[in-house]
Computed example of a mutant assay.
Amino acid sequence: MTRTRIHNLSISLDGFATGEGQASDAPMGHAGQRLHEWMIATRFGAPIVGRTGGTVGVDDAFAQQHEPGIGAEIMGAGKFGPPSWQDDADWTGWWGPNPPFHTPTVVLTHRPRPSIEMEGGTTFHFLDAAPAEALDAARGLADGRDVRIGGGPTVVRDFLAAGLVDHMHVVQVPIVLGRGVRVWDGLEALEEDYEIEVVSAPSGVTHLTFDRKTS
Results as ranks from 00 to 15, higher is better:
9 L>C: 12
50 G>F: 08
15 G>C: 04
123 T>K: 08
155 V>K: 00
195 E>R: 15
88 D>E: 14
27 P>S: 12
101 F>W: 14
188 E>Q: 13
42 T>H: 10
118 M>C: 13
183 V>A: 13
132 A>L: 05
112 P>A: 06
133 E>G: 02
40 I>D: 11
161 A>H: 09
114 P>K: 11
169 H>S: 09
153 P>M: 14
215 S>L: 14
143 D>V: 01
11 I>A: 08
53 G>I: 08
39 M>I: 13
86 Q>N: 04
125 H>K: 10
172 Q>I: 15
63 A>R: 08
206 T>I: 14
210 F>P: 01
5 R>Q: 13
13 L>K: 03
136 D>W: 05
70 I>S: 02
132 A>T: 02
28 M>A: 15
102 H>T: 13
72 A>T: 09
192 E>I: 03
56 V>N: 07
188 E>F: 07
214 T>N: 05
101 F>P: 01
106 V>C: 05
118 M>H: 12
175 I>H: 06
105 T>D: 01
131 P>I: 07
59 D>A: 11
206 T>N: 04
149 I>Y: 00
90 D>T: 14
55 T>A: 15
115 S>Y: 06
63 A>Q: 06
91 W>F: 07
4 T>P: 06
53 G>W: 01
75 M>P: 02
7 H>N: 07
159 F>M: 05
22 Q>L: 03
170 V>W: 08
23 A>K: 10
51 R>H: 13
6 I>N: 01
12 S>W: 00
126 F>N: 03
54 G>M: 03
164 L>V: 03
100 P>M: 04
60 D>P: 00
67 E>G: 08
185 D>C: 07
28 M>V: 01
64 Q>C: 07
130 A>Y: 02
116 I>Q: 15
1 M>Y: 07
10 S>T: 14
17 A>V: 15
146 D>Q: 05
210 F>D: 00
187 L>Q: 06
16 F>L: 08
192 E>H: 14
32 G>Y: 04
22 Q>A: 09
136 D>K: 14
4 T>I: 08
85 W>R: 03
147 V>Y: 02
178 G>Q: 07
176 V>A: 08
206 T>W: 02
115 S>P: 10
201 A>I: 08
67 E>H: 10
202 P>Q: 03
181 V>G: 03
